[in-house]
Write a protein that binds this DNA or RNA. Structure first.
Lengths: 199, 199
DNA sequence: GTCTATATCGCGATAGAC
DNA sequence: GTCTATCGCGATATAGAC
């Protein structure tokens, strides 16, 4: 695709870009449709030419993210499960998950808030957690098959790991005064790998 | 206090009870003030005689919970920090945290959603996480002082542990088909204690 | 497709009789 | 203190000209 786009495509892109910025800045739930159109310098009505609702826009952003992730990961998966008890390999996985979380902060943030707004009984958040940790779960199941003792059911352990990551990814203020990405990744890796009982 | 209450106290209690039930069933954000009054068989206007807003009601529920927890914990804290690397003691702490989460599901749920609705940049969720994990943090600092190697900054490790707990506590459907409390507690204890690398 | 203007509505909050 | 009735605002969504 070339650099030049039609006016319509430009508007859609502007709306998406504005939405991503606002979702990260003030959250998904707090962001009104009029906020998005204003930030994109478009009229309110134009929004509905491209999206049915805020939720629809979010799904579009998610699709973009998946497409991008698909490109980046193409051919990188060798199909052979990795050994999560190996320090280097675990760190790599934690770093990858953390990276996705940070680079796609607007979308992850929004999905998180959206799932949460559905309420606990809806199970939406649990589904999200499960979906986001399939890779962890598969690797844990692989370990279990090979006779490694796990602290519990692979799906539960995977969800616990993922929950820890998502929660920190959402809650930790991204810039400045907090912890560096490397520090967070090292800490989480260490915590998961050795546990509290030490090396 | 006796069993009989005035009409006013009865109304306030009914509103609180209805709110707790609805918060657990459909979430805090989804629950409208009119839902609460309807469930409590009271008129909409009566709500404001007792609370200024939904947020105010939540604070009242939180105060009730703290009062109750205060009674339960009175005299149980011996001031001496515990050793979180001891399996029994760690499990006790995890079980305690999990128990609070489950027994006060409506309030915890609501606090969680409320903090989240403020958006990520507000830092509200991070503050909640930090506040809910002071006990973990203190124990970790105690370990560090005694020369134990930790995977990272005590506050960060504590937040990670707390995040894992809160996230699962919120996301896991409370009844029936899921995991038992004992299973969850054992899994989390094992995960934190031995880490993935095993005993 | 984009704009301006407006219809519609849910819901928080208040007024005033009882 | 509780009720019924209503106001007012914020936000979604649509209508119709350009």
């Amino acid at each position: 695709m070339g650099v030049r786009k039609g006016r319509a495509a430009q508007t859609e892109a502007a709306l998406k870009a504005a939405a991503r910025r606002l979702f990260a800045e003030q959250g998904y739930l707090n962001t009104k449709i009029t906020d998005i159109t204003a930030a994109a310098d478009r009229a309110t009505g134009s929004f509905y030419q491209h999206f049915d609702s805020k939720d629809d826009l979010l799904r579009a952003l998610l699709a973009d993210m998946h497409a991008q992730a698909g490109e980046a990961l193409a051919g990188r998966e060798d199909g052979e499960p990795h050994d999560l008890t190996d320090p280097g390999q675990l760190r790599e996985h934690v770093a990858a998950a953390w990276g996705v979380m940070r680079e796609n902060r607007p979308v992850m943030t929004a999905l998180f808030e959206s799932a949460m707004a559905a309420g606990p009984a809806s199970g939406a958040l649990w589904e999200r957690l499960a979906a986001d940790t399939v890779m962890f779960r598969e690797h844990l199941e692989y370990l279990r098959e090979r006779g490694r003792p796990l602290p519990g059911d692979p799906a539960l352990v995977a969800a616990a790991m993922g929950g820890m990551l998502s929660m920190l990814g959402y809650a930790l203020p991204p810039g400045g005064d907090g912890y560096s990405d490397g520090e967070v990744i090292d800490t989480l890796t260490g915590l998961l790998l050795r546990g509290l009982a030490g090396a």
